[in-house]
Nucleic acid binder design. Sequence first.
DNA 1: CCGGGCGTGTTGGGATACCAAAAGTTGAGG
DNA 2: CCTCAACTTTTGGTATCCCAACACGCCCGG
Lengths: 221, 221
Amino acid sequence: MAGAMAASTELESVRVTRILRDDIVLGRRLPGSRLVERDIAAELNVSRLPVREAIRTLVSEGVVVARPRTWAVVREFTHRDIQDFAEVREAIETLIFVFAAERHDEHGIARLRGAYERELAAAQTEDSEAARVAAAEFHEIAVDLAANEMLGELIAVFLTRLRWLFGQHDDLLAMADEHRVILEALVERDTEALRKIIPEHLASGQAAAARRLADGSGVMA
Amino acid sequence: MAGAMAASTELESVRVTRILRDDIVLGRRLPGSRLVERDIAAELNVSRLPVREAIRTLVSEGVVVARPRTWAVVREFTHRDIQDFAEVREAIETLIFVFAAERHDEHGIARLRGAYERELAAAQTEDSEAARVAAAEFHEIAVDLAANEMLGELIAVFLTRLRWLFGQHDDLLAMADEHRVILEALVERDTEALRKIIPEHLASGQAAAARRLADGSGVMA
DNA sequence: CCGGGCGTGTTGGGATACCAAAAGTTGAGG
DNA sequence: CCTCAACTTTTGGTATCCCAACACGCCCGG
């Protein structure tokens, strides 16, 4: 649902935040690298203020660490951080899908099924970009069905780190299949099954993070 | 300057944030009331910058809402918001105490017991301030024992709204007793009991929020 | 050869002044 | 009473300037 309408006047701080976030998530700024307000401001032709806002935001999203009166740095995740994150995410995601199972209506299921089918089709034609988008929509719709705004807030905070850590989950078909299983349990309002399925679903994503960790491309001991 | 003796070198933005947060939590600024940067800056004898920082922070803590290019306002919580919050909190708190139960050591239990005993003593002498502090410590130590940093991050974000919504839980002795029950289950590593106890524990706090809601002293339909 | 100080340059936190754009507000006219 | 156009308020942003805290490299002594 994003990007339906063109932003008439995007706030600079939002633009800077997006640029910096993408730089980090896409690996153009490596963990440990400095984020110097003046330099970034000069690079992007803005004043320091939007840059400060952006850095604050990224700190709250957990991908940047900032100590008072020194430069901020791109966060270096430890094995422990990833483990901690996974534990919390498991609880939150379970909550989302269980609530969604309890509260969904016909229309919601239709939307969810639509997202799943688009994901599957994209996966079968190996259009990884479209598959990723559809998968994200699947989660988005699930949050919607869970009918709990705070859950949405929480997920928003998690999303950046999620993108960073689990960047590209390559096994598209396996992922789509997991979503099929979740969808089926959701339709049947089978919360018990969900409580078993979600942790398994997440575990497969964990593998990607572990791989990234092995590469050393962004995670420190 | 209005410089009350700053601790060592407290950042202005931190000071302003604390003042504004207390104003909101303690009801000196009512839900819906405007937060005008330059007015607040003048009141506190600072420039607009620290005020902006503070408002952003309070937005991220969920007690202020800000739309672009207009004043921010103190958030008005709906019944739905409170319900949503309670649902998520239940999941997070359960996670904390279950992890704490699985991972605690002797020393941790001693600390936890210390906090409980201080809470009980304060409750018996009706020192509500000391009881509140000890109860907060009890939770803090539990997060510590859970050995998951992200859980700590999450709780930090929740804490302000928690203070706002459940301001003063008056039944001190009942609360201390609930902590005793939790502590016992924690010592025995009885996670099943905890999963039953925590929701009950939280439900009693809910009553306070409901009361506040009935008063109309900060919650709108 | 190594480690602790010390001085220097860098960097964020903050103040002030000013501007543009988009909100909110008001009032006149239908 | 409603609508639409002026008017005012308020934020987002730019541009500078200053200062204190931090980082870092250099030097010196053990």
